[in-house]
Design a protein around this nucleic acid. Sequence first.
DNA 1: GGAATACTGTACCTCCAGTACAGTTTTGGC
DNA 2: GCCAAAACTGTACTGGAGGTACAGTATTCC
Lengths: 221, 221
Amino acid sequence: MRKGAETRERILEIAEMSVLAKGFAATSIEEIIAEAGITKSGFFYHFKDKNELAHIMLKRYVCANDRVFDDVIERGHQLSDDPLQAFLISLKLLAEVMSDLPNGHPGCLIACICYQERQFDREVLNLTARSVEAWNARFRAILDNIALEHPPRDAIDFDDVADMLSCVVDGSIIMSKALNDPSRIERQVMAFRSFIKLLFLSTPQIRVPMPNSTGISETVN
Amino acid sequence: MRKGAETRERILEIAEMSVLAKGFAATSIEEIIAEAGITKSGFFYHFKDKNELAHIMLKRYVCANDRVFDDVIERGHQLSDDPLQAFLISLKLLAEVMSDLPNGHPGCLIACICYQERQFDREVLNLTARSVEAWNARFRAILDNIALEHPPRDAIDFDDVADMLSCVVDGSIIMSKALNDPSRIERQVMAFRSFIKLLFLSTPQIRVPMPNSTGISETVN
DNA sequence: GGAATACTGTACCTCCAGTACAGTTTTGGC
DNA sequence: GCCAAAACTGTACTGGAGGTACAGTATTCC
């Protein structure tokens, strides 16, 4: 019975857009069902209450986001064997993905929930925390891998550098909303990329032969 | 008649805390007046409706935030004549101020409003945009000033670097909320500081002879 | 064709934002 | 101490939304 799943998906999509634009409490069930073209009974057939809606919506969001990260990281690795170059490519791709939305980025559901945390139960809040931790751990692993071949030029904790990517993305989404300028996200991801370049590349932008131990001498922009 | 101003301030403080924890729509007037120890009529004597409350609350927040930035920037300039060193000191002070809150940072009202934008009128949204622009312009001016004496090591747009501070602060506030770890904000501001160091300081921490054209070789922490 | 699935319709309850407005207390200036 | 403005209180109401309950109907897949 696939039709039920379709309706469910439609409800979730409408609800997510509304929550990101107006907040959770201001998102009325009446409005969702009006847009989805169903009745209130139909809504409560799929979700036992608004809290369950939130829970399923969040799970859906986290999965979709994971897929985006998986994709850009994988494509980075496909395009370069060097972990640093691969990550720089991934960041460029991430920047592109983020700006490739017709009406600007709708927002990060995690951030949205954090600013309305008292409205949600432990389960939802735990899921937000666990997904943020998972992303941070993932970026951290990438940095460790990079450092094996490229010694960092500043004694900064890699956990903080890893965290910074999420922070920059979430922060720039807010700025893009505040200023109604979608391009800010792309530019901020690229600014973070610049930080990574400065942190790990021993050669500045202007090309010089590299006197390092490995003897690697790759082209870098 | 000073008593009115006192009540007003109490309402605004309670409302702000509630809005940052639960969102605007979920912040009930009933709850505010219960905590403030007044009646509903008392509330509507001070604010003609919830929207006016939002407007005044935001103005209050922006002023308070401006004062914090003014303070750290001024103290930075008092402690060093070099614009780069002054900014690095300001960032350190900012990191300290951000983490110096007993129950963690309550949140950024601007970010909170951006994630509930459909609930607010043009006036409120314009005020959020104008304050973000003002902060960005301010940081940009500082960077221009630094660049006069310290040439940047990467061809990055200073507007983006300036924006990045707000992004990192807002993003790290979200992360500190998501993970219930107030220290993330301080660490992220310090990570941004590291970026500034790498961008403008010509000598990295681990001393190696640099085969660059300028021949500059300064001691740096 | 039948059973599970996917809904609709109706009726009802509670809570809260917001409105309206008359009445009362408190405060500060003279 | 008086008085007027300021700072409230009390009461009563409207409307909309979340949520419940449950019987009935249509659709879909096997």
